[in-house]
Design a protein around this nucleic acid. Structure first.
Lengths: 199, 199
DNA sequence: GCTACTTTAGCACGGTCGTTCGTGATTTTA
DNA sequence: TAAAATCACGAACGACCGTGCTAAAGTAGC
């Protein structure tokens, strides 16, 4: 591995960690350069623009996410079991990926919902793709008889994401110790594993 | 009404609108002063610090929220009907309050989840209080027999907020036209008005 | 060990940020 | 109408931002 690629990897590692802690807004060049132990301009030369750095950071975070959340579930039984594992791993993936803070994707969403541009587009596509993955898993669960045949898989996926988003808000901003339990309970209710009762 | 109070009100009106459009991060003094038609320093003199401006903006937004979402539901029948009206008004309250963008509270949450301070505290308290309101409404709905007696009202309130948060994300960032329908459907399922079936 | 190339440091730029201060204009009060 | 209190402006500050440029340091191939 060439020297340049090595420092680039170190930069991206620090960038994802920083984004996990302070969002993409905290992804400024000077503090990031300090973290890696080099100068602002030296770091800048690797990307050419701040936008390119953000995109590369997003890409690196995606690889981490795939490896931490999606890949380990491949061996799980298709249908609801696999979906449940992905959901559970999704809840705790920042810690499992060695990140010091919260999910960098959620942090990024909040900061780019108005500012149009390549970063926003990439981010939206990532979320759309993952929502599609959950829809397919739900459809598979229906085929396996884990969910009722009249399940609206799009609505189901939406509500699974809602539970995850609420967990991010509840654990992150609200700092509610009950957040994890609420997130699990919500999913179980969605999956019909609470005797089909209301919360 | 004195002159100072009038311009202060004008500033806060513009501030909430700006926060609705670009979040609290877009609440910079220069653009805000331009919007109101005065100088940065002239505007600044009304608050003394940016933090005080943010707190005042939060306060003003809270008054708007109370008047737009909570107050009109007072006349509704207690229990689930009142809760349903509040939820429905909550979904569309930025437009009903004359705001050009999205819910300023959700926008603020994302930007203050790491930065500790008075603004963060105030915001968290606002959310906690409103979650408490929803819990009480749910408890009332239980007493009226609108919800089953074994309902976990805290979990119920959490999931109602989850549906609202997901709507913010789905309509705002994802720009999904189906967002409103999803949010309504999710609430109906929570309230048990979909024949108790899963989505 | 010398050369060709890549990688990093150093410095400066234009711009925006929140904040301060003194002064003039404008209201409000007497 | 005169005096007093309030309000808004304009200029400037130090700090940080992203972005270029040039020169030095470091690395790799022969």
């Amino acid at each position: 591995m060439a020297k340049g690629a090595r420092t680039r990897a170190a930069i991206l590692k620090a960038a994802v960690e920083t984004a996990s802690l302070g969002g993409f807004a905290g992804l400024n060049l000077q503090p990031l350069a300090d973290r890696v132990g080099m100068t602002k301009s030296g770091l800048y030369a690797h990307f050419g623009s701040k936008e390119a750095l953000q995109l590369a950071t997003l890409e690196h975070a995606t690889e981490l996410f795939e490896a931490t959340v999606v890949a380990p579930a491949k061996t799980e039984a298709a249908g609801l079991p696999r979906l449940a594992v992905i959901y559970e791993r999704w809840l705790a993936w920042p810690a499992n990926a060695g990140l010091p803070g919260q999910c960098p994707f959620f942090a990024a969403v909040a900061e780019f919902d108005d500012a149009d541009g390549p970063v926003r587009e990439r981010l939206a596509r990532l979320f759309r793709d993952f929502q599609g993955v959950i829809e397919q898993l739900a459809a598979s669960a229906v085929r396996h008889g884990h969910l009722p045949p009249d399940t609206d898989v799009a609505q189901f996926a939406h509500e699974v994401l809602a539970m995850r988003y609420a967990h991010h808000w509840s654990a992150g901003f609200m700092r509610d110790p009950a957040a994890l339990g609420r997130a699990r309970r919500g999913f179980l209710r969605l999956a019909g594993r609470l005797g089909n009762q209301r919360p």
